[in-house]
């Protein structure tokens, strides 16, 4: 069962990756070609997921949109998870003044309004995909850092860690051999869920003019655009929403499997 879940997850992820890589070959239509006469047309044989407000084929836009959504999701989560884990480990392991300082920085980042940050980045760097990733990473690392630190605080007093420390294990060794593997469960969950959050947050940013600009499609932006038509054309939001859900499912199943493989104890 467990192994099967992992395989389903990997398979789905692989499918999404293929979708993104070969979008031009897989999309049934030009995702940019408009036909105002058929705005909001419901799904039919020619357009399996219906058409959006400008009469564009939603299926094709979802296929193309997977590129941006996957790219933003993966990039933001890998960068912020790495940065966050390093900073969190440093805070948790060294403790003292360093910990205090890092925690204060984290407080400042958390208390800072994300929208203001986004507007500032857009004003300084201009809109663009890279700037979306940058803006999301600036706030994204914080939760990873806090979780890592919190986990280390509990772990550092455990017998096996105390034993490792007593036997002369260095800080780096403690972090990589003891703390991080044992802290992996909440981190992987945060990463898997965070990715969904990031994909949705990208929509919020493109709403502010940062990042993906029309007419380029992204799942988040499609969800956002479909919102006013929830009552009259639910297919505008349903399909990107379902894709997002499938992607989250895939990431989670893979993440669970990975955790089981990483964590020696769960083999029991």
């Amino acid at each position: 069962m467990k192994r099967l879940n992992f395989r389903i997850g990997l398979f789905l992820l692989f499918l999404f990756l293929l979708l993104a890589l070969f979008a031009p070959m897989l999309a049934p239509e030009d995702p940019y070609s408009q036909n105002l006469l058929f705005g909001l047309a419901p799904p039919d044989a020619g357009h399996l997921m219906g058409r959006d407000l400008l009469g564009r084929d939603i299926l094709s836009r979802i296929v193309y949109g997977s590129r941006i959504s996957l790219l933003v999701g993966l990039a933001v989560i890998s960068v912020s998870a790495s940065v966050g884990m390093i900073i969190g480990s440093v805070a948790g392991t060294i403790g003292g003044k360093v910990d205090e300082f890092i925690m204060r920085i984290i407080d400042i980042v958390l208390a800072f309004p994300g929208i203001l940050l986004a507007i500032s980045i857009m004003a300084v760097l201009g809109p663009g995909l890279f700037n979306v990733v940058f803006a999301l990473c600036l706030t994204g690392w914080v939760s990873f850092a806090r979780i890592t630190r919190g986990q280390i605080l509990t772990l550092r007093e455990r017998e096996y860690v105390l034993a490792a420390h007593a036997s002369g294990a260095g800080t780096a060794r403690l972090i990589f051999c003891h703390y991080l593997p044992n802290a992996s469960a909440p981190l992987i969950i945060e990463a898997a869920f965070g990715m969904a959050g990031v994909i949705v947050a990208e929509a919020g940013l493109s709403f502010l003019g940062l990042g993906v600009q029309p007419p380029q499609p992204s799942w988040g932006a499609m969800l956002n655009e479909g919102r006013p038509f929830l009552l009259i054309a639910p297919h505008l939001t349903t399909f990107p929403g379902l894709c997002l859900m499938l992607l989250v499912l895939a990431i989670n199943l893979t993440g669970d499997g990975l955790r089981d493989k990483l964590d020696p104890k769960s083999a029991l």
Binding site: Y32, S33, Q34, L36, L54, P127, G209, Q213, P214, P215
Partner: peptide
Amino acid sequence: EIFGEQLRQIGIKLEIKS
């Protein structure tokens, strides 16, 4: 987006920044 499509028909590329 519609302007962009209509201008594309006459060979002008319209880059949208919102």
